[in-house]
Design a protein around this nucleic acid. Structure first.
Lengths: 158, 158
DNA sequence: TATTGTTATACTCTATAACTATA
DNA sequence: TATAGTTATAGAGTATAACAATA
C-alpha cells in the first residue's frame, strides 16, 4: 500500500506516457497503424488463434479487434480460415507478407529505441518491461479479483 | 544498449498499457475526461501558466491544449485572464471549483490504485514512477538531443 | 437461448492548416 | 514578419448496441 501522492503521480505518468506511444506510432509504415502492428505482433508471438482470443490479448472489445483484423487482412498480412470445429469462428494466421511486415516493425522499433534509450542498460529496459507487465496484471480483474467480479470463467484465463 | 528483443517487448508493453489508461479513464467524472483531468493536474502542480507552457507540459500541440482548456473553462474549473505583459497570451489559473474537482480526481485515483495495486509496496510504485519519468525524458528530444534537433532554445527547457 | 463475429454509430484524443490578434 | 492562441477538418482508437450465423 503506497501513499496517495504516489498514486496521483502514477496517474500523471500514465497520462504523459501517451507522448512516447505517439512517438512510436510515427515510425510505423503508413499502411500499418498501431492497432495493426499490435495484431501482427501478437499473432507472431502466440501463433494462430481465434478472434476472441486475440481480443483478450489486445484487451479491447471484439468489435475493435474485428476492425483491426479486417485492416491487416485487407493488406494480405494475415489469413482468416473458418474453424472446422466451430463454423462461427475464424482462425487467424500470419501470411509470409505478414511475417515480412512484422520483421520490418521490429527493425524500426529497435532502431528508434537504440537511439532514444542509448544510455539505458539492457537490465534497466528489462526492469521497466517487468514492472509494466506487473502493472497490467494487477489491473486485469480477470486475474486479480475473479471472486469479486467473475466476468470470465477460470478456464478461459490466460 | 539493450537487446532487440527487449525493445520489441517494450513496444508491446507500451501498446498494452493503454488498457490501464482506459481503466483509469472510466473512474473519472462524466464531465471530466482524461484531457481535462490532465489540465487540472498540471495547473494544480505547477501553478498558473500560459497556454504555450501548458502545451509543453502536456506534450501535445497547442491546438489540442486549446480545446482541453476551453472544456475546463466552460465548466468553471479554471479562469483565463489576459496577460498584461503580452495581450496575445492568457494566464490560466484554477478556480475554487477547479480545486474541488482536482481533489475529487485525486480521491478517485487513490481509491482505484489502493485496490488494484494493493500488493505493491510504496517503494515499488515509486520505482515505477521514476522509470516512467526517465522513459519520457529519454524520449523527449528537447532534452536529449538539442544539438541534433534544436527545435527549442535552451532557455525554454524545463 | 447463448455465443462468435461484424457493422453502424458516437465519443475522445490528436495533428495539420488556416485564421485572428498582437508583438 | 513572427508569435500566441483559436477553430475547422481529418484520422486513429475505442465502446455500445443491433445484427447475422451458428452452437
Amino acid at each position: 500500500m503506497a501513499a496517495q501522492s504516489h498514486y496521483e503521480e502514477l496517474a500523471r505518468q500514465l497520462s504523459a506516457i501517451g507522448a512516447v506511444k505517439r512517438g512510436l506510432g510515427r515510425i510505423l509504415p503508413a499502411e500499418c497503424p498501431a492497432g495493426s502492428a499490435a495484431v501482427l505482433t501478437l499473432l507472431g508471438r502466440h501463433g494462430e488463434m481465434r478472434m476472441s482470443r486475440l481480443a483478450e490479448l489486445l484487451d479491447v472489445d471484439m468489435s475493435v479487434t474485428s476492425r483491426h483484423v479486417a485492416h491487416v487482412a485487407a493488406r494480405g498480412w494475415i489469413e482468416r480460415d473458418p474453424d472446422p470445429l466451430d463454423k462461427r469462428s475464424r482462425i487467424l494466421r500470419l501470411t509470409p507478407a505478414g511475417h515480412t511486415m512484422l520483421d520490418e516493425l521490429g527493425r524500426r522499433t529497435a532502431d528508434m529505441f537504440a537511439h532514444t534509450l542509448r544510455d539505458w542498460t539492457d537490465d534497466e529496459v528489462g526492469q521497466l518491461n517487468a514492472m509494466l507487465a506487473r502493472l497490467r496484471e494487477s489491473f486485469d480483474c480477470r486475474t486479480t479479483a475473479p471472486a469479486i467480479n467473475p466476468r470470465t470463467p477460470a478456464a478461459q484465463l490466460t
